[in-house]
Amino acid sequence: MALQHRAYQPLFPTGNKYLQQKWDKASYDLHKQKVKSATPTISKTPPKSYGHLAVKLKKLKLEEERKMKIKRENNMLMEKISHIMRTTGGVDNKNSYDVKSLGKKKRQLELLRITNENQMILFRLSQCRPHYNVRSWHEDWLKTLRVMDSIARYPRVRASQQKGQEKPSKKSNDAATHSLVTNNSNNKPESAENESS
């Protein structure tokens, strides 16, 4: 044990290993003591508690007011029930009330006025005569067809018959009028050919 200092290897060169070991051991013990007694730099204690945050007097006050209101309503209800129990009760179950409306008469008069106006408009529309004459339109169209056939080099009926594109779905009136016009126009070119020959 007395010769332990000879096996000690100091960090820096020294003249006396025994003294250097003693000083190093003393500084190491001091370091360990400081580590044990060191205080933390970050506080790990719980935060300070405040009484007004824990108790919440406003919430207790609101709860108390709500209980007082419920108690007052219960007392009123109890008084009503006791009054009904003491007496026969003032409930009338007869349902003879007629529903009345303040604006019923005015609405009926307005509806009657609107109905009368609609009837007058309908009467005027039914008595109204049309401004356009369909017969004159038809006669104008027949004249137009005659003119078209007279100025055409080949009549339209013959060309459609040669191509086989005659449509049977046309209205009978249009077909009849068209055939009359084309017959008249067919007669005219033949007479012209006869004259030229």
Rank of each mutant, 00 (worst) to 15 (best):
A2N: 13
H5I: 04
Y8V: 06
P10N: 02
P10W: 02
F12C: 05
G15L: 07
Q21E: 06
K22E: 08
K22V: 13
A26V: 04
D29P: 00
K32L: 11
K34Q: 08
K34E: 09
T41I: 07
I42E: 15
S43E: 14
K44Y: 03
S49E: 06
L53W: 07
L53Q: 10
L57H: 02
L57M: 05
K58D: 12
K59I: 13
L60D: 12
L60S: 13
L60A: 14
L60V: 00
L62E: 05
L62G: 06
M68L: 10
K69D: 14
I70Y: 04
K71Y: 02
R72W: 01
E73Q: 02
M76W: 01
M78D: 10
E79C: 05
K80M: 08
I81P: 00
H83N: 12
M85A: 10
R86Q: 12
T87D: 12
T87N: 15
V91R: 06
D92G: 08
N95L: 08
V99C: 14
K100R: 00
K100S: 01
L102G: 07
G103K: 15
K104T: 07
K106T: 08
L109M: 11
L111V: 05
L111P: 04
I114Y: 03
T115H: 10
Q119C: 07
Q119L: 12
I121L: 11
I121S: 02
F123R: 15
Q127M: 13
C128S: 13
P130K: 07
H131C: 06
N133P: 02
R135H: 03
W137N: 12
H138K: 10
E139A: 04
W141N: 14
R146V: 09
Y154P: 03
Y154W: 04
P155G: 11
P155L: 06
V157F: 15
Q162G: 12
Q162L: 12
K163S: 10
G164E: 09
G164M: 09
E166G: 15
S169R: 09
S172F: 00
A176K: 00
N183Y: 08
S185Y: 03
K188C: 04
K188M: 13
N194Y: 13
